[in-house]
């Protein structure tokens, strides 16, 4: 690990003071320290935000929830309001990592966790995300866990998170504090960036911008589900996952929110897939049509080709359960 200057922030305003000199925030540390040990991340200053007063979950006037950026994944999954009204979010959190990791991992850190691409982790290999302009070893390499949607000629990595997939289905808003003291509200739909030719830029956050909260609107109507498919039954990242909230009225699909993990460089959402379902009676033929629309531009790289039919089957199974 490279040496760094350690600063313990006493308030959000204090934390954003440190922008500039290669500073990074550290919350739970479960992703950042992993990467610092491998010298993939080499911050000059580490700003400890773990004791900031951002660890509460509050009701909003709009009937939603305001989740502090430091709320641990365990506590968010176990919150009575989340269990009762945002089951998809509890389920996504509980499907991620392990009990120990969820106790430390935070809401803000989870959103910003970095890819699990094997070559990103292997500092002996070229990787545009780690070293801009160095090339992408994954293209033409071993691609089992890599993306099939939203890729570019520079990077085919996925965002590995589960919680952010549920948050995308729930239309979350990310609330931040900028270095200049301004606050911003960013829809999760605008938060992540496609890789294009700058895969090292993953979000629209400015240097030193602190996530303070995630706001959830009231939950959409209907049943909720998070289905995760992975190589072992627990403690593994998603190959494919579906977060869904679907309502059926009088035998007709009245609303649908669907987001996907494991497929692209960000938690994936395609509202044209949802539009296709609306106003129709649930049927396997309809679900297959929705899956085909989702995957129309999907591109496998060989070892990850299986993700395309797997996604189709997972979406059909999820929609069956959501509309049963």
């Amino acid at each position: 690990m490279k040496s760094f200057v350690y600063e313990k922030a006493t308030s959000p305003q204090d934390a954003v003071r440190f922008v500039g000199n290669g500073a990074k925030f550290i919350a739970g540390g479960t992703n950042l320290l992993d990467l610092m040990k491998l010298q993939i991340e080499t911050p000059e200053t580490l700003v400890d935000i773990s004791r900031l007063n951002l660890d509460r979950i509050e009701d909003t006037d709009a009937g939603g929830l305001l989740i502090g950026a430091l709320v641990p994944n365990s506590d968010l999954a176990a919150d009575a309001r989340v269990r009762e009204r945002y089951e998809v979010l509890s389920r996504a959190l509980l499907a991620g990592a392990s009990g120990q990791l969820r106790n430390k991992a935070t809401t803000g850190g989870n959103l910003l966790q970095r890819t699990r691409c094997y070559y990103f982790y292997d500092t002996a290999m070229a990787c545009n995300k780690r070293v801009p302009g160095s090339g992408c070893s994954a293209i033409g390499g071993y691609t089992r866990i890599l993306a099939v949607l939203g890729t570019s000629a520079a990077c085919i990595a996925t965002h590995p998170g589960d919680m952010p997939v549920a948050m995308r289905a729930l239309d979350a808003t990310i609330v931040t504090l900028k270095a200049d003291g301004d606050r911003r509200r960013i829809s999760i739909h605008d938060f992540y960036r496609l890789p294009g030719d700058t895969p090292h830029i993953e979000t629209g956050l400015e240097p030193g911008e602190l996530i303070t909260h995630v706001e959830l609107p009231p939950p959409p109507p209907g049943r909720q589900l998070y289905r995760k498919v992975r190589d072992r039954a627990s403690y593994a990242f998603a190959l494919v996952s579906v977060a869904g909230v679907v309502s059926v009225e009088n035998g007709i699909i009245a609303s649908a929110c669907l987001a996907f993990g494991g497929l692209g460089p960000m938690p994936w959402r395609d509202t044209s897939v949802e539009a296709l379902l609306l106003g129709h009676a649930p049927s396997d033929a309809l679900f297959a049509q929705a899956a085909d629309a989702l995957l129309a531009s999907a591109k496998g790289q060989g070892a990850n080709d299986f993700k395309i039919p797997l996604t189709k089957r997972t979406l059909i199974a999820s929609l069956r359960e959501l509309t049963a």
Partner: peptide, 19 residues
């Protein structure tokens, strides 16, 4: 490396002592 911090289980390898 699991230990308990304030009664909660965590991985001590992914924790900085200073924090």
């Amino acid at each position: 490396c699991t230990i308990l911090i304030n009664g909660r289980r965590i991985n001590s390898c992914l924790s900085l002592a200073v924090m």
